[in-house]
Design a binder for these strands. Structure first.
Length: 307
DNA sequence: TCCATTTGACCCCT
DNA sequence: AGGGGTCAAATGGA
C-alpha cells in the first residue's frame, strides 16, 4: 500500500536520499525501526484486548485498531525495505531492481497469470532444491522477532554450517494463490542477549495484504449488517490477519548435535515472536502460533526488552 | 476436513 | 562432495 507512492518518489537520477549524509539516513532508519517496535508493542496490547473482549463496542473496534496497526507495520516494513536496499552505491541497482520487481509484480495478482508473469523470482514449477537466489533485498538484526505486517508460512528449518542455531525459512502465505515471491530467513545469531537476523528476499505483490482496507470500508459502510458480519468474521484466529501467525515460532532443540536438521527430541526450546524462551514438551499441547503464550508473560518480556 | 508445521529427502551451486 | 534451499509426505491441532 505504501509501495506505490514511494516508488514514484524515487528519481531515476541521483536521489535526494543518496545525497544525504549516511548518518542522517541511519538516523532515519533508526526512527523507522523505533516506530515499528512501538507498533509491535501496541499490537501486542490490542491482541490481548481482542482476546478478552468479544462483546460490546470494544469487540467491534479492537479488530479495526488491530488491523490499522498491521497496516502501520507493513508501511514500516516496506519503507525499511526500500531504505535498506539503498545503503551504498552498489545497492542502487538493487534499489531499482526492487522497484521494478514491485511494479511488475502487480501483474501477478491474477493467479491464472502467475506462471508467466511471476517467473522472475520463483518458477511456478520450481524444481526441488533449485535455490539460485538474488541478493537479499533487506537484512536486519533485531533483539526480538517482530511482526512486519505480513503473513508468513514456515516451509523449512535447518542447521547451517557456520551457525550455532537453526535457520528458519518462511514464504509469504500468498505464494501459491497470488504468486507472491516474498520469502524470508530468520536466524538466531546470538544467545545473550538474543539476536535474530531476518533476511528478506523478493517483495510482496499479494493484494491480500490490502484486503484489510476493503474490510474496513465494508465495515464502515452504511450497511450495518456488514458491520456486524465483519465483526463476526474477524476473529483473532483468522489466519489472514492473525498477528501470531505471521511469524511462527522458531523451534530450536536445546541439544542439537551435528545433525543438519532438527532431530526428534522431547525437549525443545521454543522461541516466541517476542524473544522470550519457553520450554515445552513436544508431546504437550504445543503452543500454536496464535495462542498458548500468555500475554502477560509476553508483554512482560517485551517490556523487559524495552527497558 | 483443513491447514500449518515438521522433517527427511532431493537437487542445485560452488 | 558438501552445504544450502526447497519440496512434499507425515503429523498434529483446530
Amino acid at each position: 500500500m505504501l509501495v506505490s507512492p514511494m516508488i514514484q518518489s524515487v528519481p531515476h537520477s541521483k536521489s535526494a536520499m543518496e545525497n544525504q549524509p549516511s548518518n542522517r539516513r541511519k538516523a532515519m532508519k533508526e526512527e523507522l525501526v523505533e516506530g515499528r517496535d512501538a507498533a509491535n508493542q501496541l499490537l501486542e496490547i490490542l491482541v490481548c484486548k481482542s482476546n478478552t473482549h468479544h462483546e460490546g463496542v470494544e469487540g467491534l473496534v479492537l479488530p479495526f485498531a488491530e488491523d490499522l496497526i498491521r497496516k502501520v507495520l507493513r508501511s514500516f516494513t516496506n519503507t525499511l525495505l526500500l531504505l535498506n536496499t539503498h545503503n551504498d552505491g552498489s545497492d542502487e541497482e538493487v534499489m531499482y531492481t526492487t522497484i521494478k520487481n514491485v511494479s511488475s509484480s502487480v501483474k501477478c495478482t491474477n493467479p491464472e497469470d502467475k506462471n508467466e508473469s511471476c517467473k522472475g523470482f520463483f518458477n511456478a514449477k520450481r524444481r526441488r532444491g533449485c535455490h539460485k537466489r538474488n541478493a537479499p533485498t533487506w537484512e536486519k538484526d533485531s533483539s526480538i522477532l517482530m511482526e512486519d505486517g505480513y503473513v508468513w508460512r514456515k516451509y523449512g528449518q535447518k542447521m547451517t554450517m557456520n551457525a550455532k542455531y537453526l535457520r528458519s525459512y518462511y514464504r509469504c502465505t500468498h505464494k501459491y494463490n497470488e504468486g507472491c515471491p516474498a520469502i524470508k530467513h530468520v536466524q538466531r545469531i546470538q544467545e545473550d542477549p538474543p539476536l535474530y537476523r531476518t533476511t528478506y528476499y523478493g517483495h510482496h505483490n499479494c493484494k491480500t495484504s490490502l484486503s484489510s482496507e476493503i474490510m474496513l470500508e465494508s465495515a464502515f459502510s452504511s450497511d450495518s449488517s456488514m458491520f456486524l458480519s465483519f465483526s463476526d468474521t474477524f476473529p483473532i484466529k483468522d489466519h489472514s490477519f492473525s498477528s501470531m501467525k505471521e511469524e511462527p515460532m522458531e523451534v530450536i532443540p536445546e541439544d542439537y548435535g551435528v545433525h543438519n536438521q532438527l532431530p526428534s527430541s522431547d525437549n525443545y526450546l521454543l522461541l516466541c515472536d517476542y524473544g522470550h524462551d519457553y520450554n515445552y514438551s513436544r508431546h504437550d499441547t504445543k503452543p500454536s502460533s496464535s495462542e498458548s503464550v500468555q500475554f502477560d508473560e509476553v508483554y512482560g518480556s517485551s517490556l523487559d526488552f524495552y527497558g
